[in-house]
Design a protein around this nucleic acid. Sequence first.
DNA 1: GTCTATATAGCGATAGAC
DNA 2: GTCTATCGCTATATAGAC
Lengths: 185, 185
Amino acid sequence: MARPPLARERVLDAYEAILIDDGERAATLDAVAKTAGVSKGGLLYHFASKDDLAAGLLQRLDDLVVADVAAMRTTAEGPVAYYVRTSVMEGNALDRALVAASRLAQGGNPAAAARLREVRERWADTLRPAVRDEAALQLVMLLSDGLYFNNAISGTISAEQPDDPFVPTGSALDALVALVERAVR
Amino acid sequence: MARPPLARERVLDAYEAILIDDGERAATLDAVAKTAGVSKGGLLYHFASKDDLAAGLLQRLDDLVVADVAAMRTTAEGPVAYYVRTSVMEGNALDRALVAASRLAQGGNPAAAARLREVRERWADTLRPAVRDEAALQLVMLLSDGLYFNNAISGTISAEQPDDPFVPTGSALDALVALVERAVR
DNA sequence: GTCTATATAGCGATAGAC
DNA sequence: GTCTATCGCTATATAGAC
């Protein structure tokens, strides 16, 4: 109970990977089981149904968001810079869970859509004390959503990231963060 | 040829509506045919396959974007204000085609993902002369993506829009537009 | 141009052996 | 705890009548 079965985590990893790389349609029980290296029966021992599998992913997202909000509150650069900067997907656990949940939501899963909105509100509550007003808060949050959305779309196209002009990195990201901080403070 | 068959347009409307309201998974040929008021055979006369149906939707999106870019170039309030303001979904033809295509892209359709990126670049080219630098351009574009993304997520949850704090309308939208224009000009 | 009927394949889920 | 085998359903697509 303290340490969940390894197979369970591997199944969740595989589900996430297929959602991100190939979309909601491709994330069948067969495909997830195969990628995780278990049989379909084995998968269904850990997750009783496909809905249960989705619930497992959303629970994982929730845990990661709790940790992220804690980090956001204590970071030296301040919550706004932290939030914008970490919205550029680096492929860490939170990024992956978030994009996978977004795929689920757009595929028509109401639980995923509801959870994403809850998560968003938790982030908003953390950012609010650091910005001037509600318009500034919206600017920061919507910009972050835009970054995630573009990363999610980019991911669908095979093997291409290097020269994408719409997901800024390096000095372009620094410039964007600086511009946002001037606008909202 | 000059005026496409009415049934074809009705099928496309139905496909769009189901994608928006219920997600990619729900947009089966059966469901689309039923909503459009034709049989599955009738649908497949106009669109030879499901891929062909998706291609029809993407073509419709393309036509609407051409018209939108033209409007953006000639509007009195300027392209930036026009772009941000019209990113709040009002349920017009362009909004609907865009959200439907986004559902398709996140569902794993590579053609939809590629088309969305092309569309984005056309908008970027139109906005570029009106903003200070590339960071400012990114801020405007990402914010618009965020607005669309949130509207897309909201749409998934049944019958709820009135008190959504994240899709600003009225004076809140005016404040956001003003803030963005100050930041990017 | 639109219909019904049907072929074929893939999906989620169950049963029961090991 | 993990497997194989299989059921029942739904999906896309085809064939051919009207």
